[in-house]
Nucleic acid binder design. Structure first.
Lengths: 332, 332
DNA sequence: TTGAAAGCGTTACCAA
DNA sequence: TTGGTAACGCTTTCAA
């Protein structure tokens, strides 16, 4: 910048004015400065600019997601990006892989980078460690899971309701032996969906049966193994509730492996792009990702713009999407 | 930081030393400073730190992808992230949506943020506009498409070969009327795949037939419409080469709509997570995304670490993955 | 082992 | 309309 000023024969401050398109500079000088800028290949340094402006902003937000390569996380990232674009805010994205330690480390990294806000799909169970940053004014919006130990905005889906919808749908189609494939019970959503499953089964007068439950499944492969085990048991399920999309995928593979695709009913939790063309087309309880993303972005940028009202907890209703796999009747 | 120094009764420099874990501070003082830090909720400011250090680094890299929510882009993002994690480098990710203007704007934004390097899956046709930044030492690695007008590292897949593999596979299964579904011809990869298709057909002695080509398809819906049009023509194809994964998805939907799934052969370009459980299981020419990501990260961080050897252009061979849809014979 | 002063690239404030 | 000076939060000399 100094060189630009020298070459253009003006002061530093004038270069700054031109670069920032501030009014009150003669066209003549503007032209001279711009020529110097392009001649020297000068690039404005946003970090230095923001530092001096003193507002402590970085024009960046952080997005801490489960895994940027899974469809739920990446769709959410995309929604946030679309909202951020108009504001020239960049997005720093990272994957947590359900590792609490990584979450804490990444949050710290983002705070050191002075992000203006944070989208967090937490991997931790308790979130007290964020209290200090929240108090200092950092906007944090939780997604998919609620904050625990601190109070800040969240956007979640009613997981208990979703599980109930799935199980009731299967009950309505005549099933009694309905299995559940679930993730780690330490994951809030997994726990809630499992509870919803249990409550709905209980309400239907069905006693709890461990041979219908395969939990702590982390991957599609886990789900394949888990479901195969149940299917090979003495009294196999006639229907399956897969409580996460990657588990539904594993379930489909398992059903194919055992040659019972199209015979055992299946309802998944969380839609994904190709659910309509898998075999059989997958009935799911769908979370409206676009809506979630919209709500998250609205809260986050609202806070960044100075909204200091009480934290809000938006709970969206899931929706049953009927496609075939969930309407298979038992004993066919 | 000043407040911390005051509270701990030490100088600024000493606080700096403690914060950066520099040796040569008595344990006593370290403890005092750390107490003050946590008491005041002090957060180290990375931007200011990097500014003063003068090395012009930001510990960030930019990733400009087609669309962070599609599986190819997001898998690539994930690979880059895994490589960046060990180095404590953050990733700023954005989607280009094939819009050249957006690419230029985002590159400028990242340069102003002084990213240490750039992964670019370009939407532009010519890349001269990057010359200045490249010359000034910014590492840029192209992915999926080659640079045009400047010379810098790239990692691509042999698209012509991939198209040839797909078409030859269909030819080997007895097809003569092989359709192609393609994206905009302005997109380098789409053009190359189309060329590969044409060359292979020509080599097989088959004259070019416009009623086998549906191009400029941007979305699965476009692909559905395009393929339905071909299928409804007087002389429909018996096999389809879908030159991009989202087009393969549209193709499957179209085949189902017309009731010819399982009768018309289909080979896709680019694998995706559920290709094995769609109906029928999709035969694809696969790009090894993990390998691409690994190569990209290797080059990018190599350059950041000071490798100044001549730009390299890595071209990876695609691989045919046989699953069923591509082995359907004509006239069944 | 600790500190004072200077400066990274930029902008705010006030003066010319 | 333009420019000097100080300062943003930090680290780098160099001296104590």
């Amino acid at each position: 910048m100094r060189e630009v000023a020298a070459l253009a024969g003006v002061s530093l401050k004038t270069v700054s004015r031109v670069v920032n398109r501030e009014p009150g500079v003669s066209p003549d000088v503007v032209a001279r400065v711009e020529r110097a800028v392009s001649q020297l290949g000068y690039r404005h340094n946003l970090a230095a600019s923001n530092l001096r402006r003193g507002h402590g902003k970085s024009a960046m937000v952080g997005a801490l997601l489960q895994d940027v390569s899974n469809s739920f996380s990446s769709s959410l990232l995309r929604s946030l990006e679309d909202a951020a674009r108009d504001r020239d805010v960049a997005i720093v994205a990272s994957s947590l892989d359900e590792e609490p330690e990584r979450e804490r480390a990444l949050v710290e990294g983002l705070v050191r980078r002075r992000v203006d806000g944070l989208l967090l799909m937490p991997a931790t169970q308790r979130h007290d460690y964020l209290a200090e940053d929240l108090r200092s004014g950092l906007p944090i919006v939780f997604v998919d899971r609620r904050p625990n130990g601190v109070d800040t905005d969240s956007v979640t889906v009613d997981n208990a309701l979703g599980a109930r919808m799935a199980v009731e749908h299967l009950l309505a189609h005549g099933h009694r032996r309905i299995a559940i494939l679930g993730d780690l019970p330490t994951i809030q959503t997994a726990q809630t969906r499992h509870d919803g499953y249990l409550a709905t089964m209980r309400d239907a007068g069905l006693p709890r049966d461990p041979s219908l439950e395969a939990l702590s499944l982390r991957s599609p492969d886990d789900a394949v193994a888990g479901l195969v085990r149940l299917l090979d048991g003495p009294n196999p399920p006639t229907a399956v509730f897969a409580a996460r999309n990657s588990l539904a995928i594993g379930a489909i593979r398992a059903l194919h492996q055992r040659g019972v695709a199209g015979q055992v009913a299946l309802v998944g939790f969380d839609d994904f792009p190709l659910a309509d063309i898998v075999d059989p087309p997958l009935t799911v309880v769908k979370q409206n990702v676009a809506m979630i993303g919209f709500e998250v972005a609205k809260r986050l940028f609202g806070r960044i713009d100075g909204d200091t009202s009480a934290p809000q907890h938006v709970v969206l209703a899931p929706e049953l999407v009927v496609r075939g796999s969930g309407e298979i009747r038992p004993g066919v």
